[in-house]
Simulated assay, not measured.
Amino acid sequence: MRLKSLVAAMAAVASLAPIASQAQSASENPWMVRVRATDLIWQNGQTSSVSALNVKAQDKIIPEFDVSYFFTKNIAAELVLTYPQTIQINYGAGQNQLGTIKALPPSLLLQYHFTDLGAFKPYVGAGVNYTIFSSRNNLGNGAYSVGGSSTGVVGQVGADYMFDKNWGLNLDLKYATMSTNVTVTSTGADAGKLTLNPWMPSVGITYKF
């Protein structure tokens, strides 16, 4: 149901494209792409048995690719993508490795771009994050598993500095709400919740078509 909701939201944005294209000037292409390096800085909140084990996800730098469509010169939608990322989960005072899980965390955001400041073009955005967890039974040699997905909100501030009409440098900061339930694999008993809620500072290259 959550995945269907995200797909429906993306479809709704896409359905606006014919209307939005009329708002673009004839000489301006509405598409923009970016490639970023993103640092996942997990906040690692815990409850119940998960807290007793001091379970934490290990921070990681990942590649990120996003596509933006400008409905007007100020309003855009951005789809943020990567491929499934292997996240190391640690535990205990010494933060020894408990295992790994994989996470695929696409986000869809609506943005406002401030475009009248010359080459410097800051923006703000807000939207939804849907994270799909896989390889979920690898914790504690299979003793623990995590839930299949997480739906949350995501906020964003950033800026492009355009070197010319096509190429630019991008700096971006996002925060997403993200969590997963941890269960005892053998019994299905609830072991608590791991709240990840990552900060995601990024740096990358912008290309405006």
Results as ranks from 00 to 15, higher is better:
residue 1 M to H: 13
residue 7 V to F: 08
residue 9 A to L: 12
residue 15 S to A: 15
residue 16 L to W: 11
residue 22 Q to W: 12
residue 22 Q to S: 10
residue 23 A to T: 11
residue 23 A to R: 13
residue 25 S to C: 09
residue 35 V to L: 12
residue 44 N to D: 10
residue 44 N to M: 05
residue 46 Q to P: 10
residue 46 Q to D: 10
residue 49 S to I: 09
residue 49 S to N: 15
residue 50 V to D: 08
residue 53 L to Y: 02
residue 53 L to I: 02
residue 54 N to V: 05
residue 56 K to L: 01
residue 58 Q to M: 06
residue 67 V to E: 08
residue 70 F to V: 03
residue 71 F to T: 10
residue 72 T to C: 11
residue 74 N to R: 14
residue 75 I to S: 06
residue 86 T to Y: 09
residue 91 Y to D: 05
residue 100 T to E: 15
residue 104 L to C: 11
residue 104 L to M: 15
residue 110 L to G: 12
residue 112 Y to C: 02
residue 113 H to E: 04
residue 114 F to C: 04
residue 116 D to Q: 15
residue 117 L to G: 02
residue 122 P to H: 07
residue 127 G to T: 07
residue 128 V to C: 05
residue 129 N to D: 11
residue 129 N to K: 08
residue 131 T to F: 04
residue 135 S to N: 15
residue 137 N to H: 12
residue 145 S to N: 14
residue 146 V to P: 04
residue 148 G to Q: 13
residue 151 T to I: 13
residue 152 G to Y: 03
residue 153 V to P: 00
residue 153 V to S: 03
residue 156 Q to D: 09
residue 160 D to C: 01
residue 160 D to M: 00
residue 170 N to R: 09
residue 172 D to T: 01
residue 173 L to D: 02
residue 174 K to G: 07
residue 175 Y to H: 12
residue 176 A to V: 06
residue 184 V to L: 08
residue 185 T to G: 10
residue 187 T to W: 07
residue 188 G to K: 08
residue 190 D to N: 15
residue 195 T to E: 12
residue 200 M to S: 02
residue 203 V to Y: 00
residue 204 G to R: 00
residue 206 T to N: 11
residue 207 Y to R: 02
